[in-house]
Design a protein around this nucleic acid. Structure first.
Length: 456
RNA sequence: GCGCCGGUGCCCGAGCGGACCAAGGGAGCGGCCUGCAAAGCCGUACAGUCGCGGGUUCAAAUCCCGCCCGGCGCUCCA
């Protein structure tokens, strides 16, 4: 079954056409590490983690590359502010970024290249462009002539002239450039900034060149998927494409962009408060809840994150976990499949990563499992539990993670005492014990197969 | 200002020309279960209608036009 994916360049949903059958090469733009990762970074990493996991679940071999931009104006600014150095700033925030993504169960990319470690490749690439006559040098650096790219603007579906009109709307146009659309490949050294030697004098690489150099180096030309947030489509991805095209190389076969994040109805911004950083959010909610929320919205749409939505996601997760607990208490091990739901799930995911509909299949499996449990239909229960776990897992959600604690034995003893009291119909004592457990954040549930408990 | 995207129940959010699909999740209500709960299952009200106003069509939440509101982009922000 063909996987359809919306491609920004062709502006259509089209079948994923791989360079090599069975193997997917995926590059997506990672963060510039100069500050705490925010919810946008989380959605970015989660979106591509979900895509990767699904492709792997389908049996494809996926090679994921995602970069770390460890040198840019923001990092330099930060280092200056903190009287620190650029490598220190970058290393610090990179670590925090990786920890945050770990707590969201985002799998590590197979390669996580750093811009500063690919300067040689970038210089080689720029040299190629200069030699081809599609790049020129000015006092401030080396620039790419957008002229050399016939379909410049393709990713944003605007004609070059149209883009020219807008140029300078937000940032002043460098008067040295031949064309306002031309952009920098190599920046000439400025006092106090880190620099690398190059054929054009000391300086540092422009932004876009790093992704091109790293993607082609690690995945080869003509790799399968290039992704990122909507906001990167222009100018970043457009310029990457321009560089690759001007060099005469085929580049990404598919461009995948995801929507932005709104917090409490408005654009996320640092001045807005609480929920802008992943760290802050995770102080209050579990990582899976954010992933579930991301899954509930189609990846191309703007999504909303607020307290209500996070709490709702946690409640939904509780349902899934409760199902697994009940099954375990009934002595039912996951086994078998619910083929109908797996088919519905696959159809949904194959259609441009329809995670909301795919999730519906997961919850349908949970309901079916619970119903089977109620009906004492062990095979059906086992099959539906297995299906729910499998499908949720394909999206990166682990069901029924039992977090053990040091006081497990103590709790077990209290639960046992309560069972004894209940058998003696000593309801007062049974309720007292339940309250005592509740005070320790333990929820007791009585099932046909005895009492089970979990941490709230 | 220009371009692109979106506005669906109490909340989050699918659906994007037509069949008992306005999915799924959360919250609500009723029932069953329970010593009482919790969990679960079943049922049910909330969308007589899908931002507003026109239009196309045998048929529109789904297409077209206008308006209002929100988001993103317009050179370094996921």
């Amino acid at each position: 079954m063909a996987i359809q994916l919306f491609d920004t360049l062709s502006n259509t949903k089209r079948p994923l056409e791989l360079r090599e059958p069975g193997r997917v090469s995926l590059y997506f733009c990672g963060p510039t590490v100069y500050d705490a990762p925010h919810l946008g970074h989380a959605r970015n990493a989660l979106t591509f983690d979900i895509l990767r996991r699904y492709l792997e679940w389908k049996g494809l071999e996926v090679h994921v590359v995602s970069n770390i931009t460890d040198i840019d104006d923001n990092i330099i600014g930060r280092a200056l502010e903190e009287s620190s150095t650029e490598p220190e700033v970058a290393a610090h925030w990179e670590q925090i970024y990786i920890e945050a993504m770990d707590s969201l169960d985002v799998l590590h990319p197979h390669d996580r290249p750093h811009a500063t470690q690919y300067v040689d490749q970038m210089i080689a690439f720029i040299t190629e462009l200069v030699d081809k006559g599609v790049a020129y040098t000015t006092e401030t650096g080396v620039y790419l002539s957008v002229d050399a790219v016939p379909d410049y603007g393709g990713l944003v579906h605007r004609a070059p002239d149209d883009l020219r009109e807008g140029a300078g709307a937000r940032v002043e146009v460098d008067p040295d450039k031949n064309d306002p659309l031309d952009f920098v490949l190599w920046k000439a050294a400025k006092p106090g900034e880190p620099t690398w030697p190059s054929p054009w004098g000391d300086g540092r690489p422009g932004w876009h060149i790093e992704c091109v150099a790293m993607a082609t180096e690690l995945l080869g030309d003509d790799f399968d998927i290039h992704g990122g947030g909507d906001d990167l489509a222009f100018p970043h991805h457009e310029n990457e494409r321009a560089e690759a095209t001007a060099s005469g190389r085929p580049f990404a076969r598919h461009w995948v962009h995801h929507g932005m994040v709104n917090v409490s109805g408005t654009k996320m911004s640092k001045s807005l408060g609480n929920f802008t950083t992943v760290g802050k959010l995770l102080e209050q909610y579990e990582g899976r809840a954010l992933r579930l929320l991301v899954l509930q919205t189609h990846y191309r749409k703007t999504m909303e994150i607020n307290d209500d939505a996070m709490a709702q996601a946690e409640a939904a997760l509780d349902r899934l976990d409760a199902m697994a607990r009940r099954a375990a208490a009934a002595g039912i091990a996951p086994a078998g499949t619910n083929d109908e739901l797996i088919a519905a799930f696959t159809t949904a995911m194959d259609d441009d990563m329809g995670t909301p509909a795919a999730l519906a299949a997961v919850f349908d499996a949970a309901r079916a499992a619970n119903a089977a449990l109620d009906a004492d239909d062990a095979p059906a229960a086992a099959a539906n539990v297995a299906t729910a776990i499998d499908l949720a897992g394909a999206l990166g959600i682990t069901i029924g993670v039992a977090s053990g604690g040091e006081d497990d034995a103590e709790i077990e003893a209290l639960v046992q005492q309560r069972t004894v009291a209940r058998e003696a119909k000593d309801w007062a004592e049974a309720d007292r014990l339940r309250d005592e457990l509740a005070a320790r954040n333990i929820v007791v549930e009585d099932t046909a197969h005895g009492a089970i408990w979990h941490r709230a």
